[in-house]
């Protein structure tokens, strides 16, 4: 292995160590499953390493990694066994929102359910716009679509979230 390759490898290892946590959080918001999120991050890093020599500007590696992660998740969603799997079923046991801890758990549960009901691209648009705080232009670049498409997907996603959360009386809990 040449010294240049060794240097590139070291930079990749540094990037992987630094990016694992934020990528996992993004993956979890996208898929709603802890184990799948870890798998997505690993796949994302594998793909990123294969393209690592082509990532000329290392400053944009974070954005590129998010793009790769999103592609991994959308590809995962297209797999037949993923389509057949229902992730929005009713959980029979729900904690009663009596204490603050229990109330927080309930709130996250409600929010997770509401998010799970969004179509993949709407969900990605909402997460990228309102959690990762990407601009419309950046989100459009990551999603490979037009800015108008990002705006419409975000608006629909927000509307769907509002509807789902209002039926669960969670909006007031979030605001309080």
């Amino acid at each position: 292995m040449s010294s240049r390759d060794r240097s590139e490898n070291e930079r990749f290892h540094g990037f992987a160590d630094r990016s694992t946590r934020p990528l996992t959080r993004l993956a979890y918001l996208l898929c709603g499953d802890q184990h799948l999120a870890n798998d997505l991050v690993q796949n994302c890093l594998i793909r990123l390493y294969q393209a690592w020599p082509k990532v000329a500007d290392k400053d944009t590696a974070d954005a590129y990694a998010r793009k790769v992660l999103l592609r991994c998740w959308l590809n995962e969603r297209r797999r037949p066994w993923r389509r057949a799997e229902a992730r929005d079923g009713e959980v029979p046991d729900r904690p009663a929102p009596e204490t603050d801890i229990a109330r927080g758990v309930h709130l996250k549960e409600v929010f997770r359910d509401a998010l799970a009901q969004l179509p993949p691209r709407q969900r990605a648009a909402v997460v990228l716009r309102y959690w990762a705080q990407h601009s419309v232009t950046e989100t459009a670049a990551i999603l490979r679509c037009s800015e108008g498409n990002v705006k419409s997907q975000s608006a629909r996603g927000l509307a769907a979230l509002r509807t789902a959360l209002s039926t669960m009386n969670a909006l007031e809990e979030l605001r309080s």
């Binding site: 979890y28 929010f111 998010l115 997460v127 959690w131």
Partner: peptide, 9 residues
């Protein structure tokens, strides 16, 4: 809400 959820990860 998203931040709350992301903290779970």
């Amino acid at each position: 809400g998203l931040s709350l959820l992301a903290d779970e990860a």
